[in-house]
Amino acid sequence: MTFDFAIVLRFKEALLLGLWTTLQLTVICVVLGSLLGFLVGMARSANSPFVRVPARAYVEVFRGTPVIVQLFWFFFCLPLVIGTEIPNIVAGIIALTLYMGAITSETFRASLKSISREQYDACTALGLPHATQVVHVVLPQALLRAAPTLLSNCVSLFKESALLSAVGMADLMFIGQNISNNTARPVEVLTVVALIYFAIAFPLTRVVTRFESRVLAKLSA
């Protein structure tokens, strides 16, 4: 058995195009999902059960089901439910955004909860008005605390985006699989695809670890 990794180079452009699609989809879903997650995280700390309960149900459903099932549901069912065709890319973005929103809301909720009662006491002792307390003390600390996990959620979403290939979107994985089928060289092509994902995700996880210890050191004061 001989391997010819040079064959992969012939498909350099196609793979890069797939990677570009993967990155674009990731960024869109990360941005939309983080905003959604922030709102839902707030909703989960709300006093009214009419806000809190639906928010929790949403999070539990999206964390409690396989992402691939969510993806299939939005691909095959959403058009039927709303009664009109929707482009594949829209269904894909909706599914991954909702997933990102669910995991990110947990991140925000945990970081809000991590702010100690003493910080609130200090705000009261200084007579800070409620708005100042939220804008200048609570939110900055919560965001700082959430930032490393948020970044690690981005890495997760980058990896999950490979599922879009299963519903026919031309991302890195989809193009890799096509090349692999057409050339009958799965070992070379799929290994390179895996390495590309690794080359992007791994450095990011290192950054997360570094970043996290710095944030924790800062907030421990």
Partner: peptide
């Protein structure tokens, strides 16, 4: 202590006078 960890010392001191 309960200093605000995300603000430097100067900003810890002036936050309340400026905002209150």
């Amino acid at each position: 202590y309960t200093l605000f960890p995300h603000l430097n010392i100067l900003n810890n001191l002036i936050l309340a006078p400026c905002k209150v």
